[in-house]
Every structure is written in C-alpha cells, then in structure tokens.
C-alpha cells in the first residue's frame, strides 16, 4: 500500500470548519491517481499533509506504510527527502542553479536517493533530461528555458533517485494542450520505469482519462464517522 488515510481532519489556523475531512482513502503502489478539485478546495494543502510538511489535527496518514502522524518533524522532513518527489505548478526551479544543478538538487538532501541511483548522478540526470526531451539544455540557465521546458526539468528533479511517491501539484496548468499531453506522456514513461506512485492534482478534468484512477476533492469534504469515543 502506498498511501492510506483514515479519519483525517485538517484546518488552517483560524478556520472554523475543517478544510479537509476524509474518513478513508487507499492508494495502491504504482497507481497513477488523478485528483480533481476546484481552486481553493484544498489540493495544495492535502499535498502538504502527504509530504509531512503539515500535520492533521485528527486522523492518520500512512505513506509507504509509515505513520507520518507519529513521526517527529525532523523525521518527516527526512522521510520527504528520501521517498517523495515534488513537482509544482510554476517556477519550480532555483534561478541561481543551472539546469543540471536543479536536477541534482534532491540528492544533496537525501543519501537514500543517492543510493538508489544505478549510475553516476550526472549521468542519471542527463538520462532523465534526454528522456524528457531536454537533450542540450543541461548547462543552460533556467531563466532561458520556456515554461514547458522548465516543467520538464522539474519533473526530472522529482524523478531523480527514483522516489516511491511522486506528488505533482498542477504541473501543466501553465502549458498549452499539446505540450501538456507531451509532458504527461514523458512523465508517465519515466514513472512506469521507476514504478513510483503518482498523485497528480489539477482543477482541469480534461486530462483525467490517461490516469489509472480518478478522485475528486469531494472525497476530502465528506463527513467523518462519529468519533468512536463519543
């Protein structure tokens, strides 16, 4: 099991009603899940919970069978560094590093990801960039790339070190339809290769069909069961 959520409830400080409520959710290893929800429905917040950056007020989150809610803050940071790759909506890259520097960045934070490399780090980065259609850009400054190219670099960064879970937060929302499809295709090829699980959130239902499973943010707005103690 890659992901298991039970009895979850989360609200930001000052919010009267919980933003996210989810009695139960299971995601199998290697599944590619599409999670659709309107703007403001709490998609990014949910990903923060899965990444261990946020803690729920109530409930349990198991990622790769690890109970995130039981880990200390540094343990959750370590876990995120070792097992998860993130892709964000836009401006994913650090402007002061080269393309190569950006792709190699997660390895600086995780020995685990370094160990999973099957070849030299740079070779692997180059391979990922090539397979994502970015053969000749590795020494370029990231500002010089188009938005679509930048998102593919971000994908390469999420994929390096083959983390078990890839979390993508609307990575294609700034792309046109053609490059969106091309991006997804390349991403899927690489994810199948590393057999990672993918959680992909977007407000755009148009791409849902290519995923193994579709979820709606409504799943996270359902009422919880009564607290067993009461």
């Amino acid at each position: 099991m890659s992901l298991r959520i039970e009895d979850l409830s989360f609200s930001w400080p000052g919010q009267p009603e919980p933003l996210l409520k989810c009695p139960e959710l299971h995601v199998k290893s290697g599944e590619k899940v599409f999670l659709q929800g309107a703007s403001g429905s709490g998609k990014t917040t949910l990903l923060g919970l899965l990444g261990g950056v946020l803690l729920p007020q109530r409930g349990q989150i198991f990622v790769l069978d690890t109970p995130l809610h039981k880990l200390s803050a540094p343990e959750r940071d370590r876990f995120r560094a070792d097992h998860i790759g993130f892709i964000f909506q836009m401006f994913n890259l650090l402007p002061y590093l080269s393309v190569m520097g950006n792709v190699l960045l997660p390895l600086r934070f995780s020995r685990e990801k370094q160990k999973r490399l099957q070849r030299e780090a740079e070779e692997e980065a180059q391979r990922l960039l090539s397979s994502l259609g970015l053969d000749s850009v590795s020494d370029r400054q990231v500002q010089d790339l188009s938005v679509g190219q930048q998102q593919r670099v971000a994908a390469a960064r999420a994929l390096i070190g083959a983390p078990e879970l890839i979390i993508a937060d609307e990575p294609t929302s700034a792309l046109d339809a053609d490059s969106r499809e091309a991006f997804l295709e390349l991403l899927f090829t690489e994810i199948s290769r590393s057999r990672s699980t993918l959680i992909y959130v977007s407000h755009d239902p148009g791409i849902a069909s290519v995923f193994d499973r579709n979820l709606s943010m409504h799943t996270f707005h359902s009422d919880l069961q009564k607290d067993p103690s009461s």
């Binding site: 990444g51 950056v53 803050a73 540094p74 370590r78 993130f86 650090l94 402007p95 960045l105 600086r108």
Partner: peptide, 16 residues
C-alpha cells in the same frame, strides 16, 4: 519565499 518553499519540499527542515 518561493525559493525557500522549493527547498523545503526537497526535505529541508525549517531549521535548515
């Protein structure tokens, strides 16, 4: 702020 959020997603702790 963006730069720090990215670094955070890579596994950096607030202390980092």
């Amino acid at each position: 702020r963006r730069e720090l959020a990215i670094i955070r997603s890579l596994g950096a702790s607030p202390a980092d």
